[in-house]
């Protein structure tokens, strides 16, 4: 039976963990603490410098393009969902910049209307003529695929603090806990350590709890507590069983 259970465990673990530890996506670490390029933005309020935005409050910068048939729409939708669910009291703005030179402001506004993002006025949509400078300052490298008439790119969210420095980056579609860490980071809250993005988080001890901003226990911690539970279970079982043994010993002595 033990062998069967063991192979089951292996099988279970096999399907949940399939990545070696060193293969993390390091692009999230790129350009950390570098200054974002202070480019001229074209928004519905007219022109402004990017620094005008971050000087008033920290910002999250999302890079998208309106013709995208891939990740851009789900990325923005998920971001707005997560922001709504998180309902953070911290002040910050979201800046969506198109990295496609042929996008116009109205293309972006259409996108906003379609997705229903900017209901509270927290979001700003912008195009810029200096997109290359912006891209390279945050380490974003979209590649034009002429066959599909699409950019080949990753979803990227960049957190900028009030001084214009990149505090944190998130690539791909990410959960609410990462967003919480991002918002703490752009408000210069120090987090002494963090796990690197990798698929293998099954047995980690803690995951970040967005509700409290603290790390909450996950399966790994259960494994850590398991020996205590098992030992106390064993002791209790022995204690109950031992009543019988003591009775037997006493009877034996009485005989």
């Amino acid at each position: 039976m033990c062998k069967g259970l063991f192979s089951l465990l292996i099988l279970f673990l096999f399907y949940t963990n399939v990545q070696a530890q060193s293969e993390y996506n390091f692009s999230e670490e790129e350009n950390i603490n570098a200054k974002i390029a202070d480019v001229q933005l074209n928004t519905s309020d007219g022109g402004m410098m990017l620094s005008n935005l971050y000087n008033t409050s920290p910002i999250l910068v999302a890079l998208v393009f309106s013709r995208c048939t891939g990740i851009c729409s789900p990325f923005l939708l998920q971001l707005s969902d997560n922001i709504r669910t998180l309902n953070s009291k911290e002040k910050f703005k979201v800046l969506v910049v198109s990295f496609d030179p042929i996008d116009s402001l109205s293309d972006l506004e259409d996108m906003d209307n379609r997705l229903g993002l900017n209901k509270k006025g927290q979001w700003t949509f912008a195009t810029t003529k200096q997109i290359d400078a912006l891209n390279s300052s945050v380490g974003f490298r979209p590649i034009w695929d002429s066959l599909r008439k699409q950019f080949d790119h990753d979803a990227l969210l960049v957190g900028i603090n009030e001084n214009g420095y990149i505090a944190k980056k998130l690539t791909g579609l990410r959960g609410i806990s990462d967003l919480k860490m991002m918002i703490q980071s752009i408000h210069n809250e120090f987090i002494p350590s963090y796990p690197l993005p990798r698929k293998n988080n099954l047995l980690s001890c803690f995951t970040y709890d967005p509700a409290t901003g603290k790390r909450k226990p996950s399966i790994g911690l259960l494994i850590l507590v398991l020996p205590v539970v098992l030992t106390f279970g064993l002791i209790l079982w022995l204690a109950i069983r031992s009543k019988k043994w003591r009775r037997a010993t006493n009877n034996h002595l009485a005989d």
Partner: peptide, 9 residues
């Protein structure tokens, strides 16, 4: 530690 980043200031 593999898989984690420790920030030392």
């Amino acid at each position: 530690m593999p898989g984690y980043v420790n920030r030392l200031r």
